[in-house]
Design a protein around this nucleic acid. Structure first.
Lengths: 194, 194
DNA sequence: TTTAAAGTTAACCGATCTGTTTACTTACCG
DNA sequence: CGGTAAGTAAACAGATCGGTTAACTTTAAA
């Protein structure tokens, strides 16, 4: 099933979808940019939606793998890695080909719930959250689920702020906020009442 | 320049753009749904982009006005209003016509920087942030700019989490995080070192 | 009552959309 | 060697895209 052409199509599709949106890029343009005939494209993918799904899934695996590896490599302890999330994010935001989160952008164009595209986006976010929960648990925090959910929200917010407002330093702000939340959930500390 | 038809077009455009994306909705569809002829549409707007801009600007004014009023009405003091942001957001997320933030979605489709559409989105976010800074200042927080920026990131994150993952309760999580950050920035409190 | 603006329907333009088909060329594999 | 899967270019189909035009009707103010 796999072939070099198929992968070229997926890679090209990811680039073009990121840059111009999903409805904004046609099959002809993708096939041409990937140096692949239209027929071959329809040989590998039954429809545009299937190509979109393949692009989302490939980007899911690639991005999450790179992101998690970078976080692991950026700090030695789980606690520090929770903060390293935002260092990795900051490097990402600074990339000249930063177009925000592909999955957030996809949901913006496909609002109908419980469709394959929506499910793929949900899946990505759920798995990223699971990674945060794991780190928070390893760090021995009191409420790992709560902290992980908060950090996930901070990351999402930093992404769209960097994207919409063009401020890559949103990663720094989010990191500071994360540090306060993590400190607050550290068991050895005396916790002040709500 | 203004007329009932013009406003119908804008209102219809906002609904359709939110539900199907900007590239996903054509002029014909908008005109038909608004019960307005195509000619009339092009009488009021020179191009689709001008209609998009008018829709974004109208939504900007309307949404921000409603949001700020709701926040002011939800709590009596600036400090409590900073938290009320997330109560208002939660009510918004629960709306059956919640499609995320129109401006975030717009940037996902129009990535080229320094275009009128991008500027309109930037403007919206900047003015919302200004509102948060004002509240944080009135609340007498030590670093109103920092706190406001953090709350803005938390709100953005809660929006996309509710949108992508279908969890309106992200507003609750964000609210808890905001409470910790606000407490941390309250001057009467002894602040522990970083 | 005249007149100009705002409105209508419907046809048309060239381009592009997703998807199919035809006729032909590789390249590998049993 | 012979067959099959993967590839090509290019035309085609029907729909829709953004945008224009022609001929006509409504509406409201001077």
């Amino acid at each position: 099933m796999n072939s070099a052409k198929r992968q070229q199509l997926i890679d090209t599709a990811i680039e073009l979808f990121n840059a111009h949106g999903f409805h904004g890029v046609g099959i002809d343009r993708i096939a041409h940019a990937a140096h692949v005939s239209k027929k071959t494209m329809y040989h590998h993918f039954r429809s545009k939606e299937e190509l979109i799904l393949a692009a989302l899934r490939h980007h899911d695996g690639l991005f999450r793998n790179n992101f998690m590896k970078a976080v692991q490599a950026s700090a030695p302890t789980p606690r520090e890695r929770l903060l390293a999330i935002f260092d990795v994010a900051q490097a990402w935001f600074g990339d000249n080909k930063f177009y925000g989160c592909m999955f957030i952008n996809a949901v913006g164009e496909y609002s109908e719930p419980d469709t394959p595209i929506r499910d793929a986006c949900k899946d990505f976010k759920r798995q990223l959250l699971a990674f945060f929960v794991e780190l928070a648990s390893e760090a021995g925090l009191e409420t790992p689920g709560e902290v992980a959910a908060s950090l996930a929200i901070l990351l999402e917010g930093a992404i769209v702020t960097a994207q919409v407002s063009g401020r890559p330093d949103s990663a720094r702000t989010a990191r500071h906020a994360a540090a306060v939340l993590i400190e607050r959930a550290t068991p050895s500390l005396a916790v002040e009442a709500d």
